[in-house]
């Protein structure tokens, strides 16, 4: 038999990327989203979330490593009923750059 043996987990070498999600604003949405990352052992480096002015929709910013599974993950995010849109940005997006001063 070809034994199915786990490979060591990749630890580095991937570019960071920023995801921008618009989601319905109600309890439970965040756990639907982070659950998708957690079960794939996909580390979320940064999260920022605030409701948009009218209160029914929230915007979530995620800072993640862009490994080869990211495309599949984005498709799974787009399937979530409460996720209205997903956009991908470069790691240099100012949202986390500006937030950095709160993490010193």
């Amino acid at each position: 038999m070809i034994e199915q043996v786990a490979e060591p987990l990749p630890t580095s070498g991937f570019e960071k990327t920023v995801l921008e999600l618009e989601v319905n604003n109600h309890p439970g949405v965040m756990s639907h989203i982070v659950g998708l990352f957690a079960r794939r052992a996909f580390n979320v480096e940064g999260i920022l979330c605030m409701p948009l002015p009218d209160g029914t929709v929230s915007r979530i910013w995620l800072l993640v490593f862009a490994d080869q599974r990211l495309e599949q993950l984005i498709k799974q995010l787009e399937k979530l009923v409460d996720v209205r849109s997903v956009r991908q940005h470069g790691a240099d997006h100012e949202v986390f750059v500006q937030a950095e001063r709160f993490f010193r």
Binding site: E71, Q72, K75, Q76, E78, K79
Partner: peptide, 8 residues
Amino acid sequence: IDRAEFGK
């Protein structure tokens, strides 16, 4: 019908 299956 499920786009997430393409390329999975």
